[in-house]
């Protein structure tokens, strides 16, 4: 029996003005599972991802990650949780503009523990950027920037990778490269939660959870054991 990595129970998120972005969401994600979260704009996908990445707290309900209820953590403990358990991949990459590719990866190491240039270089080589170590983000293509972002997300060996539209700003060729990297992460046993609009991306996931109006309309079928290399697509757009 594969253990539950993420357990969300009755999570509701209301913003000022009464907007309810999430409305009683409950879901489980198993360790090593690749889950795609899909839904129309405003359905609460990104809000859910923010709760999972400890960047935000639910108005009510609980969010458990690796057995800990992160909604009860103080701000500093949430920061610690983020740097130790979670790797984030953003649609807009969010690299520090004045740091090179290598330094951007080392930044995550710096906040986690100790920067190690050799390890950071290796991580960039793994994503095919061995020749771009000392380039600033402005001198990298979108695909290359996303690969730096992935190397940064992976550098501290997090158990969970959370990605928000990771291929949303990429052309087809770069999308393919990035999805290959996600396949590798999955094969290495990382738990992947990917918010996407792209059926190609969700088709690669073990399961797709559909949200509409802040509610789970299709939970997909949680798997009890993780087959590797044989993703199951439960929902497609």
């Amino acid at each position: 029996m594969t253990k539950k990595m993420i357990e969300v129970r009755q999570a509701t998120k209301e913003y000022a003005g009464g907007t309810r972005a999430l409305d009683g969401v409950s879901l489980d994600i198993l360790q090593g599972e690749w889950v795609a979260i899909m839904g129309p704009s405003g359905s609460g996908k990104t809000t859910l991802l923010n709760l999972l990445s400890c960047l935000d707290r639910p108005t009510s309900g609980t969010v458990g990650i690796d057995g800990a209820d992160v909604t009860r953590l103080a701000a500093n403990q949430m920061a610690q949780f983020r740097r130790e358990k979670v790797g984030l991949v953003f649609q807009q990459f969010h690299l520090v503009p004045y740091l090179t590719a290598l330094e951007n990866v080392m930044l995550a190491q710096y906040f986690h523990s100790m920067p190690d240039a050799d390890e950071a270089r290796h991580a960039l080589e793994e994503v095919g950027l061995g020749a771009r170590l000392h380039h600033l983000p402005s001198h990298l293509s979108g695909g290359e920037q996303q690969r730096v972002c992935i190397a940064r997300a992976l550098i501290n060996q997090p158990q969970v990778i959370l990605a928000d539209e990771p291929t949303g700003n990429l052309d087809e060729a770069n999308e393919e490269i990035v999805l290959d990297l996600f396949r590798n992460m999955h094969a290495q046993g990382h738990t992947l939660v990917v918010v996407t609009h792209d059926p190609t991306v969700s088709a690669m996931a073990d399961r797709t959870i559909r949200l509409e109006h802040g509610r789970v309309v299709e939970p997909g079928e949680a798997m009890t054991a993780m087959p590797t290399g044989a993703p199951r697509v439960l929902q497609q757009a």
């Binding site: 990445s53 960047l55 701000a75 500093n76 920061a79 610690q80 949780f81 983020r82 740097r83 130790e84 979670v86 984030l88 969010h94 520090v96 503009p97 930044l107 995550a108 906040f111 986690h112 940064r152």
Partner: peptide
């Protein structure tokens, strides 16, 4: 602000 937000997302404490 984006840089600060990123650093926080990477797990940096406000103090740091």
């Amino acid at each position: 602000r984006r840089e600060v937000a990123l650093m926080k997302a990477l797990g940096a404490e406000a103090r740091r």
